[in-house]
Computed example of a mutant assay.
Amino acid sequence: MTRTAETMEIWNTLDTVLDPEVPALSVTDLGIIRDVKLSDGGKVVIDVTPTYSGCPATDLISEIIKAAVVSSGHEDVTIKTVLSPTWTTDWITEDGRKKLKEYGIAPPVGEAATGKAALLGISPVVHCPRCDSTQTEQVSEFGSTACKAMYRCTSCLEPFEYFKCI
């Protein structure tokens, strides 16, 4: 994917489009924007990979992305859903991980939370986003959305969400 000056302007617009479920992250921080193409005729095609195929915010995110790009001066905008390869939390940028922590959500951590380790009940070491303690415990497998779990820090006693590894 080659970024030209014209597509960089669109990428910059996408940097301002916030995820409706986690408004601390832009869609580029989340890593769901796969590609931006601009034809000689001015048609914009944006490839988007949803965080998972059943994500209830997928259509809304596509509408928000399209509206932002249209508002930036592009009239012919198509959002193309790309399901393969599937999105993974590895695609969240480092800046996005920092923003999650600052927002109070523990970012996804380590290989222990993915693959066979999760099936074997090996829990990740989740740092409290408030005090950075590793003395944390899972309260619920699900938080405000299916992609997050509820945790509690046993050091500072604060509850927080953890963005689960996928």
Rank of each mutant, 00 (worst) to 15 (best):
V36P: 01
K37S: 14
L38T: 08
L38M: 09
L38E: 05
S39N: 07
S39A: 15
D40M: 09
G41I: 06
G41C: 07
G41V: 07
G42T: 07
G42W: 03
G42V: 08
K43I: 12
V44Q: 01
V45M: 02
I46R: 01
D47V: 07
D47G: 15
P50D: 11
P50F: 10
T51V: 12
S53T: 13
A57M: 13
T58L: 04
D59H: 10
D59P: 00
L60N: 08
L60D: 02
I61V: 15
I61P: 02
S62D: 03
S62T: 04
E63P: 00
I64Y: 04
K66H: 07
K66F: 08
K66N: 10
A67K: 11
A68I: 06
A68S: 13
V69Q: 02
S71T: 14
S71M: 10
S72W: 01
S72H: 05
G73N: 00
G73T: 05
H74K: 13
E75W: 00
E75C: 04
T78E: 15
I79E: 06
K80Y: 00
T81N: 09
L83I: 12
S84M: 09
S84R: 03
T86K: 11
T86N: 04
W87C: 05
T88K: 06
T88H: 05
D90E: 15
E94F: 03
E94M: 08
D95V: 12
R97S: 08
R97P: 04
K99Y: 01
K99Q: 03
K99F: 02
L100I: 08
L100R: 01
L100Y: 01
Y103E: 05
Y103A: 07
G104F: 09
A106Q: 02
P107F: 03
P107Y: 02
P107D: 04
P108Q: 06
V109N: 01
G110Y: 02
G110D: 09
E111L: 15
A112F: 10
A113S: 15
G115L: 08
K116C: 06
A118Y: 00
A118S: 12
G121C: 08
G121D: 04
I122H: 01
S123Q: 12
S123N: 06
V125M: 06
V126Q: 01
C128M: 05
P129T: 08
R130A: 15
R130H: 15
C131T: 14
C131I: 14
D132L: 15
D132S: 15
D132Q: 15
S133W: 05
S133F: 08
S133V: 13
S133Y: 05
T134K: 07
T134E: 12
Q135N: 15
Q135R: 13
E137L: 11
V139W: 00
F142S: 09
F142R: 09
G143H: 04
G143T: 11
G143W: 03
G143D: 09
S144D: 10
S144A: 11
T145F: 00
A146Q: 10
C147T: 14
C147S: 13
K148E: 11
K148A: 13
M150C: 11
Y151T: 07
Y151I: 10
Y151E: 05
C153V: 08
T154R: 13
T154W: 00
T154N: 14
